[in-house]
């Protein structure tokens, strides 16, 4: 019972941290996914220079841990006179992360569209941009949805890394509270619950979508 009473007292501060976490996750998804689509197109193009550039951005984003990229943005770039606020640096690093992971999922989705769809479009005489945006992309995105939702959950949990550069997100709030009273067990349990309360329903929704899509194809 004492835990519950203490949790209730901590909750306002925790909620403001959760708000910051959700904001960072939201920004990284809203900006990262369109960028991911762009990258997936760059990687699929015939132009060698564009493809190489796209590949480099994707592979660095997926190959390097998000924390490394976060540190590079926050501690590394000031060396070139580019300094960000901690929350901006966190957003940029996670945008890169989200773009890199989502681009591969979108590329796979787009490639999964059957060849016959392209042939029908050609035979009808549809222009290339109509074929892509009205025929291929809607179908490719549809099959990418479960994967993209999975990445969104990862991004939300990944916001905890921003703690490392003192962004006042959920982990930072928890740590601050913990260091006042040294009741780390209680506070980090609460933090874990806060993450779970968002992530678990999101996972259920993802599974629901996966099942629904399996039924329709």
């Amino acid at each position: 019972m004492t835990w519950l009473a203490e949790w209730a007292a901590y909750l306002p501060q925790m909620m403001s941290g959760l708000g910051v976490s959700l904001l960072i996750a939201g920004v990284s998804i809203v900006a990262g996914y369109p960028l991911g689509l762009l990258l997936s197109l760059m990687v699929s193009t015939k132009n060698l220079a564009i493809r190489t550039l796209g590949l480099a951005v994707v592979e660095i984003g997926r190959g390097a841990p998000a924390l490394v990229i976060l540190y590079l943005f926050y501690y590394g770039l000031p060396k070139f006179g580019i300094a960000f606020e901690s929350i901006t640096a966190a957003c940029l690093a996670l945008i890169w992360n989200a773009a890199a992971y989502s681009s591969e999922i979108m590329r796979a989705g787009i490639q999964s569209v059957p060849r016959g769809q392209l042939e029908a479009s050609s035979a009808l005489g549809l222009a290339q941009h109509h074929t892509f945006f009205r025929v291929v992309l809607p179908q490719g995105m549809r099959s990418a949805i479960p994967g993209l939702m999975g990445v969104a959950i990862q991004m939300f949990q990944g916001t905890s890394l921003a703690y490392a550069i003192a962004v006042p997100e959920l982990m930072k709030s928890a740590y601050n509270i913990g260091s006042q009273d040294f009741n780390y067990l209680q506070i980090f349990t609460l933090a874990g619950l806060c993450y779970a309360v968002i992530s678990m329903p999101a996972t259920w929704i993802t599974v629901f979508f996966e099942k629904r899509m399996a039924r329709h194809t």
């Binding site: 059957p114 009808l124 109509h130 009205r134 179908q139």
Partner: peptide
Amino acid sequence: GMVFQSFNLFPHMSALKNISFPQQKV
């Protein structure tokens, strides 16, 4: 015009849209 063995209709469009969409664009 061409008709395929595997139909190749656009699965995300209604029957009507399948027929109307190319007319509008082409």
